[in-house]
Deep mutational scan, measured.
Amino acid sequence: MADQLTEEQIAEFKEAFSLFDKDGDGTITTKELGTVMRSLGQNPTEAELQDMINEVDADGNGTIDFPEFLTMMARKMKDTDSEEEIREAFRVFDKDGNGYISAAELRHVMTNLGEKLTDEEVDEMIREADIDGDGQVNYEEFVQMMTAK
């Protein structure tokens, strides 16, 4: 299944994987998964984290390695993001709930994920998604960005 991913997608997933893999040992533990999910405003229980890991832990060693992570991402993409997942993601970014993602809100979430971005990089990300040019990202623009192939 992971063989249907483009090189660009694999590179993006590698970057995402390293955000989860806090200690850089090449595997994601339940603790690391929990840290990232909490930084995104989720509050999973230990059991939920274990279930999430077990779902993709092909070799049964209790952690997720990069090939397992790729399989999980490929699977998720095949079920292409349901509207509800996209709306949920939008809410994570839209901290003040005004229906727009500002540069400050984007920077806040990315920083929580451990991504240190310059102001230019954040502005560039907003510009790429900002179709109507108002300097922020509304829900429609967010959907376009998330579903762009």
Rank of each mutant, 00 (worst) to 15 (best):
L5T: 14
D65A: 10
R75C: 02
F69N: 03
E140V: 09
D57R: 15
R127E: 01
Q9A: 00
T35F: 09
S82P: 05
M125T: 09
D81V: 14
Y139G: 00
K31F: 07
E15F: 01
A47V: 10
T27K: 05
E32I: 07
F66Y: 12
M125F: 06
D134I: 02
H108C: 03
T80Y: 04
D25N: 12
R87W: 15
G99C: 11
F142D: 04
A58L: 01
A2L: 09
E120M: 03
D23Q: 05
S18F: 12
I28N: 10
I28H: 04
T111N: 00
T71R: 09
K76Y: 15
D79I: 06
E121I: 05
L5Y: 00
E32P: 01
A74Y: 15
P67A: 10
T80W: 05
K116W: 15
I10K: 00
L113M: 01
F90R: 01
M72N: 13
T63W: 05
Y100I: 07
D96N: 13
D23T: 00
E84W: 03
F20E: 04
F17R: 00
K95A: 00
F66N: 05
L33V: 07
D21W: 13
S82R: 12
V92Y: 14
E120S: 14
G34A: 04
T29V: 15
A58M: 03
E128G: 11
G41T: 07
N98R: 10
L70F: 06
K76A: 14
A58F: 05
K31C: 00
L113F: 11
L33A: 14
Y139N: 13
T63P: 12
N43S: 14
I131K: 05
I101G: 02
I126W: 06
E32V: 13
L33D: 00
K149N: 11
A129R: 06
R127M: 09
A58N: 03
G135S: 14
G99R: 09
E128D: 14
Q136V: 05
I101C: 14
G114V: 05
E83C: 02
E140K: 10
S82H: 14
T71I: 12
N54H: 08
I86V: 11
N112T: 11
L5N: 03
E7T: 03
L33S: 09
Y100D: 13
F20W: 14
G41H: 02
D123E: 08
I101H: 06
Q144G: 08
M37L: 10
I64T: 13
K76N: 07
E85V: 08
T6K: 02
A129K: 14
D130L: 04
F93W: 08
E48F: 13
T6G: 06
D132P: 00
R87N: 08
H108D: 14
D51A: 10
M145E: 06
F90L: 07
K78N: 06
V92F: 13
D119A: 15
T27V: 07
I28W: 04
A74I: 01
E32N: 09
G99N: 07
N43R: 15
P44Q: 10
E120N: 11
E124W: 09
V56I: 05
D3C: 05
T71D: 01
Y139R: 02
T27Y: 03
G41W: 10
E128V: 14
E124Y: 03
E15V: 08
I64L: 08
I53T: 13
R75T: 03
F142W: 05
G97W: 01
E88P: 08
G60K: 15
A11E: 01
E85Q: 05
G34I: 02
E128L: 06
F13V: 13
E68T: 10
K22I: 11
Q9V: 04
M145R: 03
G135A: 11
K95R: 13
P67Y: 00
K22Q: 12
V137G: 04
E128N: 00
V122S: 15
N54W: 08
T147D: 10
R107M: 15
K76G: 01
I101T: 08
V122A: 12
F66M: 02
V137W: 13
E8P: 04
Q136S: 05
T63Y: 00
Q50Y: 15
E85M: 14
D132S: 15
G60H: 15
E55M: 10
K31Y: 09
R127W: 09
E84M: 01
T71C: 05
R38Q: 06
R75P: 09
F69S: 07
L40P: 07
D94Y: 07
P44F: 08
A103Q: 06
L19A: 14
D21L: 11
K22N: 13
T147V: 15
E141T: 15
F17A: 00
I126Y: 12
F20N: 04
L49R: 14
A74C: 03
T27H: 04
R107T: 00
T111M: 03
D130E: 10
E141D: 10
V92T: 14
A89P: 00
A89T: 07
T71F: 02
Q42V: 01
E83W: 11
M73Q: 06
D119I: 02
I28C: 02
F93D: 14
N98F: 10
I101W: 01
M77K: 07
R75K: 12
E105D: 11
M73G: 15
G97P: 00
M72W: 11
E7L: 06
A16P: 03
E115M: 14
V137S: 06
L49H: 15
D59G: 11
E8S: 09
D65E: 11
K149A: 10
N138P: 15
I86E: 05
P67L: 11
T29W: 02
T147S: 12
T35I: 13
T80N: 03
D130G: 09
R91W: 04
G99M: 05
T6F: 05
A2R: 00
E7K: 08
K31N: 11
